[in-house]
Design a protein around this nucleic acid. Structure first.
Length: 853
DNA sequence: GACGTGAGCGCG
DNA sequence: AAAGCGCGCTCACGTC
């Protein structure tokens, strides 16, 4: 059946003129086709060659895949659906439609929707999503983020279900992706019996309180009723530790029927009124019988501690953290995104957005926003937060294994909130001086670089000085003007100018450029950041997040304390000299030794791996180095072992293979010597092992062939680990997710390495998190004055009172090696820690191995 | 001017 | 067959 519109009627002619695609295709302005028995409209991308030739959507290869999959579900693409494209004329050579073309064709799609009034709209692929939600969301068109949502779309009174485009499945050819696609399709089909969505007006459910006695009355009710309460602040910035911060307004909800909002530090009250309201609100916060819920618990808790000087009691749930546990995808935890995908609510922040500044000023302008709008916005946040909590409780109930993870992370964010409050001491004066010093160094190197012949050549050809920070201009210089051969490509296939590439060139220019980059990185990424983040109390208060990492690890930002240089000596000194203990204290760091390998052993139960871990006289990396380097154990230096471990053993475990490993390892051992001082390349040569690359001839060097044999032996040795990776992949194919022993699941399209890496990386961090929670409790209950100041995936950093060092070390070791194994029986190998300590009043830089007596 | 992306690089 | 995984920050650059 043909659609309603004839070619002439499709869209406004001026839009089509502007787009122009209709001039170059066989079937211009293709109307929708199909019978739509299931009242479902499929919106795809654009006609391909076959579609264009026959005037029917989805009949090419991709369409056939969709047809087959639907047939398996007893559906017929032509009978049960209507089909239309986001762009309805074929773009030449099937290229991706441009934004303009999508815009021009949108009215055609909308017309079809208005005519057909579908119950369901399936959006196939990124382009369809991007086009459909055009101007509703800035950017983020990634389909991975949108798939698996069934969105009530009130404008068209229907449900919108985004999915992968079948052509993507065809192109990638991966059974795992195919599985995800078919599951999604099945899910979408299972929704076909839904009634049309019901739109609810939430705007009239907000009580904006601006009368003093009414506020006091409502707060009194909350305090007396003692029902679970969601609350939310609008504040003057994201960081309450910065100077002069305010909580402009407060909102809360104790049911999904109504929410309340009132001004706090928003300029409105006189002193006496404000005092009374603050005290009443604090009473509620301190009432442990009132369970507290927030979307980003840590945020509200921090503001209570600092601005209201109040420790919140009764924290029960963080809807943002739980959302991450329910669905680990990036960019979905925001309340706005949840409100849209769950209830079709959209754009309720639009009146307030312009007052929330995004730049670096320490305060936003929310105090200049009209009070009624501010309160309306805040109230809606609380209402939606409460609704979200209600739905999440049910979802977590249905997914029992996740309750463990949810509980761990709730305790985790509370403990990390303490860590953030503690902050780490920072020497502002030092960072300013060091920043200036590096600026001078950078200036000198710049002068040297501009005097190099390379820079002059660039100027001759282009008429301007080269921007040494520009990868694009460096690319032109090195591979165009100087005609050097690129050895490495970037992810997107361009010639790389990174360290590795520059290092191969070995001229004065590239050597200086490498140093120049290092200094810039040190100054601009670290020193500048530290300078900016030092608060009036002389400390840096970073954030530690549990709602980002897809493996359920943590992350850190503002500043990120988890990536401060340590391997490069010069950068390490520059950055770490200014991170200091409180007066009279010592910085200590406790690391889990080889944590990920141990956790991997817990997952795989590989006896060979477990033997290595259990028997401290053996060393898996040393044994591997013996084989690879053809050296006796006595000739293997620390460095040689180190590179074997990192470039080969770990790489193999995480899914790499001999070819890239041979290349990487060979580069990394350059210049190293054996214990008796023989150059390692020379030694390997004497064993007939050499590495070279012959472009495109497919000739493997002797070292590469050697490593190929090593790899075969490696997997014979660790065959149980190998079997486990296969089991994991199978489990994922059957269930659509991978499961962690610590109460988490990761779903969506995962590559092979992600399937094996996620449980190991995640659960390893959970060991650290559990230990941190325990240690934090212990410090409090023993009334110790030492503080946890940072956490880096498998280590805890402390600001330790000198007289407490022994006690802290003892209890930390006990927690991390003994108590944790009592708590988690799945840890079937011993855990071990390494402890480092810096002298009194010395920076983190000076940490040294700590020997217990 | 705001925003997103790519390249590069720091850590576990 | 296959080119470890996970993050955050900065700059350049293109787009609207």
């Amino acid at each position: 059946m043909k659609g309603f519109f004839s070619a002439e009627e499709m869209g406004k002619p001026d839009f089509c003129d502007e787009c122009g695609l209709f001039r170059t295709c066989i079937t211009p302005k293709m109307s929708y086709t199909g019978n739509g028995n299931k009242k479902t409209l499929i919106i795809a991308e654009a006609p391909g060659e076959e579609e264009d030739a026959k005037g029917i959507q989805l009949i090419g290869q991709a369409g056939q895949l969709l047809r087959t999959c639907l047939n398996k579900l007893n559906l017929d693409l032509d009978q049960d659906f209507w089909k239309i494209n986001s762009v309805n004329c074929r773009p030449p050579k099937n290229r991706k439609p441009t934004k303009k073309e999508l815009q021009c064709c949108k009215p055609n799609v909308e017309k079809a929707i208005e005519e057909l009034k579908p119950n369901f709209i399936w959006l196939m692929g990124t382009v369809a999503v991007d086009s459909f939600f055009m101007s509703m969301f800035s950017g983020e068109p990634s389909i991975g983020k949108w798939r698996r949502y069934v969105i009530p779309f009130h404008k068209y009174n229907c449900w919108v279900i985004p999915m992968y485009h079948p052509s993507y499945i065809n192109r990638v050819k991966d059974t795992k992706l195919q599985m995800v696609f078919e599951n999604d399709l099945q899910y979408a089909v299972s929704c076909l019996n839904l009634e049309r969505p019901v739109e609810i007006d939430y705007n009239n459910k907000i009580n904006k309180l601006t009368n003093f006695s009414i506020i006091m009355e409502e707060l009194n009710k909350v305090n007396n009723n003692e029902k679970p309460m969601f609350f939310d602040y609008e504040t003057s910035s994201l960081n309450p530790y910065k100077a002069n911060q305010k909580i402009w307004s407060v909102s809360f909800a104790t049911s999904s029927e109504e929410a309340f909002a009132f001004p706090l530090h928003y300029p409105y009250w006189d002193e006496i009124e404000l005092f009374a309201i603050e005290e009443m609100w604090k009473t509620i916060l301190k009432n442990p019988k009132i369970l507290k819920i927030a979307h980003h618990l840590k945020f509200e808790d921090k503001w209570n501690r600092t601005v209201l000087n109040t420790k919140t009691q009764g924290w029960d749930w963080c809807t943002m953290t739980t959302q991450h546990i329910l669905d680990d995808r990036a960019g979905i935890t925001g309340l706005k995104f949840q409100a849209f995908t769950r209830w079709g609510i959209f754009d309720y922040e639009k009146n307030i957005q312009k007052y929330i500044s995004t730049n670096e000023t320490t305060q936003n302008n929310l105090d200049k926003a009209p009070l009624q709008e501010l309160l309306q916005y805040g109230g809606l946040d609380s209402l939606f937060g409460f609704k979200l909590w209600e739905e999440q409780k049910l979802e977590i109930c249905r997914k029992k294994p996740l309750q463990k993870g949810n509980a761990l992370f709730l305790e985790g964010i509370k403990a990390l909130c303490d860590v953030e409050e503690n902050g780490i001491g920072a020497d502002k004066e030092y960072y300013e001086q060091e920043h200036n010093r590096l600026t001078e160094e950078i200036f000198k190197i710049e002068e040297t670089l501009y005097a190099c012949p390379e820079a002059l050549i660039y100027k001759q050809h282009t008429g301007k000085d080269i921007n040494l920070k520009s990868t694009k201009e460096l690319n032109i210089l090195l591979y165009d003007l100087l005609a050097l051969t690129p050895e490495k490509l970037t992810d997107k296939g361009k010639n790389s100018v990174d360290f590795e590439s520059l290092n191969l060139i070995q001229t004065d220019f590239t050597r200086n450029l490498v140093t120049y980059r290092k200094y810039l990185k040190t100054r601009d990424t670290y020193l500048a950041q530290f300078k900016r983040e030092i608060c009036p109390d002389g400390r840096i208060h970073p954030t530690f997040n549990l709602h980002f990492a897809r493996t359920f690890r943590s992350s850190s930002n503002d500043p990120n304390l988890q990536n401060i240089p340590v391997r490069d000596k010069e950068a390490r000194i520059s950055c770490r000299t200014g991170l200091i203990p409180s007066k009279g204290n010592q910085i200590g760091e406790v690391d889990f030794s080889s944590l990920e390998v141990r956790i991997m052993a817990c997952y795989t139960n590989d006896p060979v791996l477990m033997d290595y871990i259990n028997d401290k006289t053996t060393d898996m990396h040393r044994d591997q180095a013996i084989d690879i380097l053809q050296l006796p154990a006595s000739e293997i230096t620390k460095e040689l072992r180190f590179h074997t471990k990192n470039s080969i053993v770990f790489a193999f475990f995480y899914g790499s293979w001999y070819k890239p490993c041979a290349e990487g390892f060979w580069k990394n051992i350059k210049g190293l010597k054996t214990v008796s001082g023989v150059d390692i390349y020379k030694h390997l040569k004497s064993k007939g092992l050499e590495y070279y690359k012959v472009a495109d001839l497919g000739i493997a060097s002797s070292f590469e062939r050697h490593l190929q044999k090593i790899e075969i032996k490696f997997w014979e040795k660790y065959k149980v680990t190998k079997e486990w990776t296969e089991y994991q992949e199978n489990f994922y194919l059957r269930h659509g997710y991978v499961e962690l022993k610590t109460g988490f699941r990761r779903s969506g399209y995962l590559k092979r390495n992600q399937i094996t890496n996620t449980p190991v990386q995640g659960s390893a961090f959970h060991c650290l998190l559990w230990s941190l929670i325990e240690l934090n409790k212990e410090i409090k209950s023993r009334n110790l004055k030492s503080k946890i100041v940072c956490q880096i995936h498998d280590s805890i950093v402390l600001d330790i009172v000198s007289s407490e060092v022994q006690e802290i070390v003892k209890v930390t070791r006990e927690i991390m090696t003994e108590r944790i194994r009592n708590e988690w029986k799945w840890i079937t190998v011993p855990l071990d820690v390494e402890i480092e300590l810096a002298p009194i009043d010395s920076p983190w830089l000076d940490k040294e191995e700590y020997k217990e007596d």
